[in-house]
Simulated assay, not measured.
Amino acid sequence: MIRKAVIPAAGLGTRFLPATKAQPKEMLPIIDTPTIQYVVQEAVNSGIEDILIITGKGKRAIEDHFDRNFELEERLLQKEDEMYNEIMKLSDMANLYFIRQKEMAGLGDAIMYARQHTGDEPFAVLLGDTIIDSVMPVTQQLMDMYNQYQSSIIAVETVPADKVNRYGIVGGKRISDSILQLDQFVEKPTIEAAPSDLAIAGRYILTPGIFRALDETPKGKNNELQLTDALTNLLKREKVFSHTFEGKRYDIGNKLDFLKTNVEFALKHTEFATPFLSFLKEIVATYKD
C-alpha cells in the first residue's frame, strides 16, 4: 500500500527568469491555480495524504500557499466571498511536510532527502512542475500497477521519434499493451540510440531499494546525482516496470508549453471558455490577414 508521496520542487526555474527570481516556478499559475497545487491534488485524489515537498532557496511561497492566512480568511468571510471555502481547503488538503535541498545536485539528490520520511515503505514521486490531466489520477494508475507487481513503476508516454533526445527514454520487454519490464534507461538519447519512444513522464512509484541504489550511484554531469542512473543500478537487484498512462501530460518547464497549457485549461474553464474561444478566433483571423 502506498501511503506517502514526495514532490521535488527545488529547481531554480531559470527558463522563466526574471519571473522566477523571487517566485518559485511551481507557483506559476495555470489560470488561477499554482502548478504545484494541481500536483498535490493528484496525490490527494489518489488517496495519499502524507506528502513531503522538497524545496530550495527562495521557495518559501510554496509553504505559505498551503498554510493558513487568517487575515485573508477573515476578510473573505466578512465579504461572504465564495472563495472562502476554496482558501480554507488549501490548508486541509493533506498532511504536508517541507524540507530544503541544500544544493542543486540533481533529482536523485532531491529524492535522497525523503529517506527519513518514507523509511522502508514504497512511495510515490510526483515532479512539481508537471501536470497530468486524466480521468483516473496517474499516481492512482501507478499504485494499482504496484499492487499487482510489487516493484517500482514508472509512468511513461509515447513521444515522437524526433523528440526522444529531450527526455529520459526507457527500454525493456513488453508484458502487456501498457506495461514493460525495463532493462535500460537512456537519458536524452539520439534517435539511433533510443531503445524506444517511451519517455519518463514525471510520476513514479519507488521501492525503498532506490536509496541504496542512489548511495551507489556516482554523480554525473554538472556534479548532479541523476535518478535515471540510480534506476539503472536498481535494475541489478529488483524488477522495474513502466506503465504507459492514460491521460495528457503538461510540462510547465518551458515558456511555450506553459502558454499552451494555460490556453488549453482556459478552454475547459466553464466561467469563460466560450468568450475566450471567440477571442482566440479573432486573434487567429487577425494574424491570417
Rank of each mutant, 00 (worst) to 15 (best):
T14P: 07
K21D: 06
V170S: 01
Y149E: 00
I51Q: 02
D229A: 13
D129A: 07
F279R: 15
A193K: 13
G108S: 01
F241I: 06
S278L: 13
D215V: 06
Q37G: 10
E103L: 07
K239F: 12
T35W: 03
V44E: 04
K188Q: 04
N222M: 12
Q41C: 09
P218L: 11
P137Q: 01
R100A: 13
A199N: 01
D129I: 05
A94K: 09
T33K: 15
K255P: 07
K163Y: 12
F185P: 04
D215W: 09
Q41Y: 03
Y84W: 12
S278N: 14
H269C: 14
Q140R: 15
L17S: 09
F245C: 00
A5W: 06
E246D: 14
A10V: 06
R203K: 10
I191Q: 15
G13H: 05
M112N: 12
A114V: 07
E157Y: 07
F70N: 15
V40A: 01
N254V: 09
I51H: 05
M136E: 12
N233P: 03
G106P: 01
K79H: 12
D133C: 13
I205E: 04
V40E: 04
E246P: 00
H243I: 03
L28A: 03
E26I: 07
N222I: 10
R3M: 05
M104D: 04
